[in-house]
Simulated scan of single mutants.
Amino acid sequence: MSGFTRHRRSGRVIATFSGLEADLLRSFASQLIELLRNEAAVSRKHEDPLEAMLSFDGPTTEPEDPVLARLFPTAYPGDVEAAGEFRRFTEGSLRDGKAAGAAAIIDSLEEAGLPPQLGPQRIVIDVELEPAEALVWLKSFTDLRLALATRLGIEQDDDDRWQALPGDDPRSPAYDVYQWVGYLQETLVDALG
């Protein structure tokens, strides 16, 4: 995988993935969608007809899962009521947007030829994205990296600690994936620039 580049004539953003790389991206995007959809939002009784029509019945408390708490941080840490109201009006649509972005990655990979089940054959997937599609991927890469960083416990400015991990540390492969998604994100930013 050489990262994303921009095609000079069409303006499309292009990347080539091995079947294993494409399947790994699909798997992480699928897991993100599952995480976004599985934590139930607490519904409230609608007292206002407009509220009922617009369905502002999202959750009012911070998600229990640390990844979701990182993806949907509290807007007003010092004001529980304002934070709950903000979350109620915004979190549902934000979850939908993040899930749609992850689904767009899956759709693009499968449209480019990634089979539903990756078999023993060696395949190469060429993905071509319009700039608007590439922006969706870029946002999803951010979500995927935040999820990986949260699960691994990666903190800002602790690169030396992670670089020093021995190869047999069980976190090492996950950290490599975190770095790889960061590389994809960086090349995508460059290609869009």
Results as ranks from 00 to 15, higher is better:
101 G>R: 05
93 S>D: 12
51 E>H: 10
138 L>F: 11
15 A>D: 03
64 E>L: 15
81 E>R: 07
97 G>Y: 11
89 F>H: 13
105 I>E: 01
159 D>G: 08
80 V>K: 14
51 E>I: 15
189 V>T: 10
127 V>N: 01
77 P>I: 08
68 L>G: 01
162 W>Q: 01
163 Q>N: 13
8 R>E: 01
85 E>N: 08
92 G>H: 11
70 R>L: 12
161 R>W: 09
64 E>K: 12
135 L>P: 01
172 S>M: 15
53 M>P: 00
121 Q>G: 03
137 W>L: 03
46 H>W: 15
29 A>W: 04
138 L>S: 06
97 G>H: 14
125 I>L: 06
13 V>K: 00
171 R>A: 12
187 T>G: 06
113 G>S: 08
102 A>P: 00
88 R>F: 05
22 A>T: 01
6 R>T: 01
117 Q>S: 10
144 L>E: 08
16 T>Y: 07
36 L>A: 02
138 L>Q: 05
162 W>Y: 07
122 R>E: 12
12 R>C: 08
172 S>K: 15
1 M>S: 09
133 E>M: 12
150 T>I: 04
1 M>A: 08
146 L>G: 00
147 A>S: 11
16 T>R: 15
113 G>V: 07
63 P>H: 02
66 P>H: 08
86 F>N: 02
115 P>C: 10
57 D>C: 10
84 G>L: 13
16 T>H: 12
75 A>L: 09
144 L>I: 09
81 E>N: 05
58 G>P: 02
45 K>V: 15
73 P>D: 09
109 L>N: 00
98 K>V: 04
72 F>H: 05
191 A>T: 09
142 T>N: 09
131 P>S: 05
29 A>D: 05
20 L>S: 04
143 D>R: 15
46 H>F: 15
136 V>D: 09
181 V>N: 01
49 P>Y: 06
144 L>N: 01
84 G>E: 05
33 I>W: 01
80 V>P: 00
187 T>V: 14
29 A>C: 03
158 D>W: 11
70 R>Q: 07
169 D>A: 12
67 V>Y: 02
58 G>T: 08
155 E>A: 15
110 E>A: 11
53 M>Y: 13
70 R>G: 06
164 A>Q: 12
47 E>C: 06
137 W>I: 03
68 L>N: 02
5 T>M: 06
90 T>R: 05
47 E>A: 13
117 Q>T: 13
188 L>M: 07
92 G>D: 10
69 A>Y: 04
103 A>S: 06
192 L>A: 03
155 E>T: 15
57 D>Y: 09
176 D>M: 06
155 E>W: 14
64 E>R: 14
84 G>H: 03
134 A>E: 06
11 G>P: 02
174 A>T: 09
49 P>E: 14
106 I>V: 11
122 R>F: 10
122 R>C: 04
73 P>N: 08
